[in-house]
Design a protein around this nucleic acid. Structure first.
Lengths: 249, 249
DNA sequence: CAGTGGTCTAGACCACGGT
DNA sequence: CCGTGGTCTAGACCACTGC
């Protein structure tokens, strides 16, 4: 048999395995917002009959998406679009402990916002044209009222217009849920590059440290489900708070 | 049906799914050296009939092992025990470029070797008793004859006795293949913790840098297929050569 | 209780590698 | 050419969730 495997009209490569075509079609349906993060998708029985494949083949496609972190399964309840938790990912690099000792999310304060033309690095990372504008945020993240991270954030104005008029004190501790609510922009994945830099005077003042001391710098490009870049972010934190654990094979 | 699923006499938890029992039994057979790294394991047909499960169930167990990096499959050839390449993993953290520009493995030189009693941190990491001795190596890794990494390595003497008598210039650039050849010790996985430190005088001299400047420190505990710790390693490199990229979801 | 995902079967045919 | 893993089917029964 050789039937098309698209429920969304999205063009698929017929030479690919069926489970791969299913995977791609499901990604497309998530990327276009047919199922939003947190929602259940149709049952395995419904999907396999709609796509005219066996349950085993459908399972393989869903297995792939679960492995990629796009879906989660819950026996007896259903399969859900996962809501990524990338915003809090700095916790992976820095051990923030509150005065009580247990790990807590730092609070955030937006210090500055402007609409400008980005430099080459940001423009390329966000795949913008020469004339496209960005919203730039300067943001400080604090633990027990002490500054621990300094962030610069660039957002394409075309996608994030509602943020250009938002009062600075209405920006929340976690921005990504706010992106989703106010701008319908969902961050699905991100690529981060770590390096060690030295604090210049301005950064040292922000982080209440000496200029010239080492800081960990994280350069992040965040992407939506369709793989399009959504946000460029530059974060710096004191190197003495840095600790990262990794398992390798 | 309810048949036992062990081809190795290894005790298995019958309440677990069959594919999980298969997975555990296969891990055990690899851990005991029944199939060595690089070797091909029996075909799917042979294994599924030996274990009295369907090919689908066996495939799921093998899929797990492939995802864990223990096995690799090659269509038309067979399924192989993967030879882990952990020794070269520092390439993930430091961008070593030779004078020609392309990335190259640094060379290595063992500066010192002694048999001693380890401190608490090493003893706990290697799960040794109070009276157990270790072989300690001090090692420098060089790129174009320039030192880039300084390493301290601790090995349980009981497992690595042949290295206690090896001439220092006979230690090779990559130690793990040598562990396997001379001591029958295979490193399968490792856990690494990164942090930023300051170079003390001795380290600064080794790495030809100024004391007090930042270095990236990597603490590694390496494990065999059975999950037993095999090696403790402490590596330091100049922070300005550090760059690490990570994809998050 | 009904409905969900989780596990498992006993095959089939295909694509690739090496002879 | 044969043997390998790769894909796929059309079911079955189980374990868990929530009404």
């Amino acid at each position: 048999m050789n039937r098309p495997v698209s429920a969304s009209g999205y063009p698929l490569d017929e030479r690919l395995p069926r489970y791969q075509q299913l995977h791609d079609d499901l990604v497309h349906r998530i990327a276009t917002g047919e199922w939003l993060p947190g929602e259940v998708i149709p049952t395995e029985a419904q999907l396999s009959s709609a796509y005219e494949v066996s349950t085993g083949t459908l399972r393989k496609a869903v297995d792939l998406l679960v492995a990629e972190g796009v879906l989660t399964r819950s026996q007896g309840r259903g399969t859900f679009v996962r809501r990524p938790q990338i915003d809090a990912s700095m916790l992976r690099f820095f051990r923030f402990k509150s005065s009580s000792g247990d790990p807590v999310l730092p609070t955030a304060r937006v210090l500055k916002r402007e609409v400008t033309t980005p430099d080459d690095e940001v423009r390329q990372a966000l795949q913008l044209g020469r004339s496209d504008k960005v919203i730039r945020l300067s943001r400080l993240r604090l633990m027990d009222a002490l500054p621990v991270l300094a962030e610069e954030i660039w957002l394409p104005r075309a996608r994030f217009a509602p943020l250009a008029g938002l009062a600075l004190h209405d920006f929340e501790d976690l921005l990504y849920p706010q992106y989703e609510r106010l701008c319908q922009q969902v961050v699905a994945t991100a690529r981060e590059t770590l390096s060690v830099r030295r604090a210049d005077k301005a950064l040292a003042r922000q982080l209440t440290m000496e200029a010239g001391q080492p800081v960990i710098h994280v350069r992040r490009v965040a992407f939506d489900f369709a793989g399009k870049p959504v946000e460029f972010r530059s974060t710096s934190g004191r190197a003495d708070g840095f600790q990262y654990e990794i398992e390798i094979r």
